Amino acid sequence: MTFKLIINGKTLKGETTTEAVDAATAEKVLKQYANDNGIDGEWTYDDATKTFTVTE
């Protein structure tokens, strides 16, 4: 399955996707991606669209 991350950061905005077997696995990968890029904020997840959003 494809999961999307929408980034609403102070210095970085955009989106990325990852392939994962489930939402929990995708969340780990996407949170690591955000952490690697210095993004720390509030996370939400929409199961209907398989989209995570992080807002700083």
Rank of each mutant, 00 (worst) to 15 (best):
G14P: 07
T53R: 06
Y45H: 01
I39C: 04
L12E: 07
Y45E: 00
D22M: 03
K10P: 07
T49I: 07
E42F: 12
G14K: 13
A26Y: 01
F3T: 01
I39V: 11
N35V: 15
T11W: 13
A23R: 12
V29C: 07
A26Q: 00
A23I: 11
E42S: 11
D46G: 02
K50H: 13
T49L: 08
A34W: 03
G9H: 09
D46M: 04
V54K: 01
D40C: 12
T17Y: 15
I7L: 07
I39T: 03
T55A: 05
K28H: 09
K31L: 07
D47I: 09
N37H: 15
D40M: 14
K31Y: 06
E56P: 09
T17L: 08
W43S: 00
A23S: 10
G9A: 09
K10E: 08
V29L: 13
V29H: 08
A48N: 12
T55M: 06
L5G: 02
T17A: 08
L5W: 03
A23T: 08
T55S: 08
K4F: 13
Q32C: 06
E56H: 06
V21S: 12
A20H: 04
I39A: 04
E27I: 12
D47S: 12
A34Y: 02
V54D: 00
A26S: 02
T18N: 03
K31R: 15
Y45P: 00
A34T: 05
Y33C: 04
F52H: 01
T44F: 10
A24K: 12
T17C: 10
D22H: 04
E27W: 15
V54Y: 02
N8I: 14
D46Y: 04
V54M: 05
G38W: 05
I6W: 04
T11Q: 10
K10R: 14
E19Q: 14
K13D: 06
K4G: 04
D22Q: 03
F52S: 00
A24I: 12
K10S: 10
N8P: 03
G41S: 02
K50A: 07
I39E: 02
T55R: 06
T49A: 08
E27M: 14
W43T: 01
K10G: 08
I6P: 00
M1G: 10
E56S: 07
N37G: 04
A23F: 14
T16M: 14
A48W: 08
M1N: 11
D22L: 04
A23N: 05
T51F: 03
N37K: 13
T55D: 06
L30H: 03
D36K: 09
G9W: 09
N35I: 15
T18A: 10
V54N: 01
F3A: 01
T2F: 11
F52N: 00
D47K: 09
F52Y: 06
T53G: 03
D46F: 04
K28D: 06
A34V: 06
T16F: 15
T2Y: 09
A20E: 05
E15D: 06
K4R: 14
T16V: 15
K10M: 13
K4Q: 05
N37D: 03
A20P: 02
V21K: 14
T16G: 04
L30C: 03
K13F: 10
D22N: 09
W43V: 02
G9L: 15
K31P: 00
F52T: 00
D46K: 03
K4Y: 14
I39Y: 05
K4D: 02
V54H: 01
W43G: 00
T44W: 08
E15Y: 14
G9P: 03
L30D: 00
V29M: 12
K13Q: 12
D36R: 10
Y33P: 00
N8T: 08
V29Q: 13
T55P: 01
T2Q: 10
K31V: 06
Y45V: 01
K28Y: 11
F52E: 00
A26C: 02
D47W: 09
G9C: 11
D46P: 00
A48C: 07
N37Y: 13
W43F: 05
I39S: 02
G14M: 15
L30V: 04
K50T: 04
D22R: 03
D47E: 14
K4P: 01
A26G: 03
T53S: 06
D36G: 05
T53M: 09
E42R: 08
D46I: 04
K13C: 11
T55L: 06
E19N: 13
F52Q: 00
G41V: 02
N35M: 15
E27D: 04
L30T: 01
T53V: 07
W43P: 00
N37T: 07
D40A: 13
G9K: 06
F52P: 00
K28E: 08
A20S: 07
V21A: 14
T16C: 12
G38Y: 06
D40P: 05
V21R: 11
L30I: 03
V21W: 12
A34I: 05
N8H: 10
I7P: 01
K31T: 05
L12K: 11
G9Q: 06
G38A: 07
L30N: 01
T49W: 04
W43C: 02
T25N: 07
D22S: 07
T53A: 05
K13V: 10
N35T: 14
E56Q: 09
G14V: 15
A48M: 11
F3V: 02
M1S: 11
T18F: 11
F52L: 02
T16I: 15
T49S: 10
D40H: 14
M1L: 13
A26F: 01
D22T: 05
A48Q: 11
E56K: 05
T25E: 12
A24M: 10
F3D: 00
Y33D: 02
L30M: 05
N35Q: 15
T51A: 05
A24V: 12
L12Y: 14
T55W: 12
Q32F: 05
T18G: 03
N37P: 01
K50C: 06
W43E: 00
L30Q: 00
D22Y: 03
G41L: 03
N8R: 11
V21H: 12
V29R: 11
A24Q: 11
L12P: 05
